[in-house]
Design a protein around this nucleic acid. Structure first.
Lengths: 181, 181
DNA sequence: AGCCGATTTGCAAAAGAATCGCTTCTGGGC
DNA sequence: GCCCAGAAGCGATTCTTTTGCAAATCGGCT
């Protein structure tokens, strides 16, 4: 999972004045954008933060427990959150999207396993290089007159672990439920 | 349109031995891959080549004239073509895809206008830089054990021309049909 | 604390894109 | 010219995402 540049310290030693939970931070951003802080939204944000990685709307909705809110609400929230930059969107090869919380850290880039859709982060060196190139492009575009410039960058591949699993599946592991439809 | 590294010279001066049309080149690739050269496929390839830019399956199908072939066939052909690398796929923000012929030139990268979905190519300097970064990432991934590594890179923005059109629309142009829904 | 209005949500239905099954057709090797 | 695996046609289906509208909720104000 490579975990790294994440705001994963709920109340860690940092006592510089702001020791709010990620969910609180997200709520502040909501408010700043003039959006209401509703129960479903908080639940969704909590789930998103807990997931800590790009997650599909469907998965997110299940994660909430079927009692929490309608899936349409999740769709609408993600759209709203994305428009204010509270979440970042990632894509699978089939065109469906995953969402990831964005609390201010720099863009992250992922590799998605073609077989399991498991998402892994790029190592920071590659990511940095990539970020640099992407920024160059975006600057160039802005200079040309483009506005609201954004981008999508995704890598795909057959992950070594997935390949291994699959190779052994016929031989040893009989009932290992495949996660994430 | 920035046109650049394209094989757009049907029978231009090149007399080094191979002066086949792009469609012929594509057909050869088909054959090499063990796929049949059928009437619909040739028509689709011709349309794709004529378009010379990322095109949606739907548009492609219309371009063929409703008489030519079923849209499902276009879907299937694009899938087949993509799997043998005869076409490259691009994405719109909504997750739908566009296809672009690939006759061997290096990967091209695009900016898609958020308003009109019009596609423009990146300038070659940016593209080169980007290509370099992307290759670095892919090498790293392969080194880590990933196989069949690939990527998606798309840029989005409000194109200056589109923005201008829109800005004037309320003032001057009364009935300028917006192209490409 | 209670009220009011605009924003959100829920639910049902719709819109689209892409896929699947199955039969019929056809390219191209013999 | 014959044959058959691969391809196309056509209908129906799946799955994701969007839309319309009534009911519920948030949160500023009194």
């Amino acid at each position: 999972m490579i975990a790294s540049t994440q705001t994963n310290h709920p109340i860690t030693g940092v006592k510089g004045g702001k020791d709010q939970t990620p969910v609180e931070v997200a709520c502040i951003k909501l408010k700043e954008a003039g959006l209401r802080i509703t129960q479903p939204r908080v639940a969704i944000l909590a789930a998103l933060i807990k997931a800590g990685r790009p997650t599909s709307i469907d998965t997110l909705h299940s994660e909430l427990g079927a009692n929490s809110c309608d899936i349409v609400t999740v769709y609408r929230c993600m759209a709203a959150f994305e428009s204010i930059g509270l979440v970042r969107r990632a894509f699978l090869i089939n065109g469906t999207s995953l969402y990831e919380i964005n609390l201010g850290d720099p863009n992250r880039y992922h590799v998605v396993c073609k077989q399991t859709n498991q998402v892994e982060e790029l190592d920071s060196a590659s990511a940095a290089e990539l970020r640099k190139a992407v920024q160059l492009v975006e600057e160039t575009l802005k200079a040309k007159g483009y506005s609201e410039v954004g981008h999508i960058v995704e890598f795909f591949g057959k992950s070594p672990t997935a390949a291994a699993h699959r190779a052994q599946a016929n031989v040893a592991v009989p009932a290992a439920a495949t996660p994430q439809a």
